[in-house]
């Protein structure tokens, strides 16, 4: 290899997928190309827990708690598990944290790479399918306890509304309506959102609803962290609308969390849903 020029494979036209290019050029950099010895590896690395997403007219909100656990130990209190995938989409991860963060990095590069080479962004379904392919390639490691289960959401510019996709460890891709949650606390979060979610929530109300759901998940799941009032660590909340995505500032989330906590001081189980009939006066707060 004395030729100093760019390798011929770099100059070859045709491949616009970064992960395909990586698989051909430097397969050792792919997160799922490691040969694992037999046995369970799930207890070796921290696990991320609960991610919640919900749509509102004009966009979608995704929030994740800040806890990573290793067995009964809290491995990290301020881990971030919700990442922007590109300008109009966001991905949250539950499962083996290290592997998941690496996968998100690959996914981000994949989307950006396609955009730069092709001069146009992938469609929302195209992005969701690419993520499914990355998850599918991880099945071997998932069976040894290093599963990564993402939640993908974004604003579909063509359809003009927010969309949510969930995945299973085999790479199955499912579009969800209204709201969804993944991770160890997801059962409680989904139950909470069932009572809190309404289709006409605005951006702040929707963010409040998902933080409420995270609070309920933390209430009943030891692996999910609630708002940490003493250290001022709050869930990561990302909002995506037609103008692109942004992360809510810590002060904004702190304000929401303070209001929620104020309500829970009076009623620890959270807002009361009416027993019968659709309500138009219910309030997420």
């Amino acid at each position: 290899m004395n030729d100093p020029r760019l390798p011929a494979s770099y100059l070859q036209p045709g491949v616009s997928s970064f992960s395909d290019f990586l698989a051909a050029q430097a397969p050792e950099l792919l997160p799922n190309r490691r040969a694992l010895p037999q046995g369970q590896a799930g207890d070796l690395a921290p696990h991320g827990t609960t991610i919640v997403a919900a749509t509102f007219p004009g966009g979608v909100v995704m929030a994740g708690d800040r806890r990573a656990t290793m067995g009964n130990i809290i491995a990290q209190r301020d881990i971030e598990k919700v990442f922007p995938a590109d300008e109009y989409s966001v991905v949250g991860i539950a499962g083996a944290a290290g592997l998941a963060v690496e996968m998100v990095r690959l996914f981000q590069t994949e989307l950006e790479h396609y955009e730069k080479i092709e001069g146009t962004t992938l469609s929302m379904d195209g992005k969701a399918n690419r993520l499914a392919a990355l998850i599918r390639a991880n099945l071997g490691m998932a069976m040894q306890g290093l599963a990564v289960v993402p939640l993908f959401a974004g604003y579909d510019l063509r359809q003009g509304h927010g969309r949510i996709f969930s995945y299973d460890v085999t790479g199955g891709r499912y579009e969800e309506q209204a709201f969804f949650s993944v991770g160890s606390g997801s059962l409680f979060a989904k139950g909470s959102l069932k009572k809190l979610y309404r289709e006409d929530l605005d951006e702040t109300e929707c963010a409040t609803a998902v933080v409420q759901a995270l609070y309920d998940a933390a209430d009943d799941d030891s692996a999910t962290g609630g708002p940490d009032m003493t250290r001022r660590i709050f869930p990561v909340v990302r909002v995506i609308t037609a103008d692109g995505g942004r992360r809510l500032h810590d002060e904004e989330v702190a304000e929401i969390a303070d209001r929620i906590l104020g309500g829970r001081m009076i009623r620890p189980d959270g807002p009361l849903a009416p027993l019968t009939g659709p309500s138009t006066t219910g309030d997420a707060r």
Binding site: L11, P13, T109
Partner: peptide, 18 residues
């Protein structure tokens, strides 16, 4: 130059990822 551009994007993305 399109070939060179694509090679540049690949080189940059590869380095940024690694």
């Amino acid at each position: 130059f399109e070939n060179l551009r694509i090679a540049g994007v690949r080189l940059a993305d590869m380095r940024g990822y690694a």
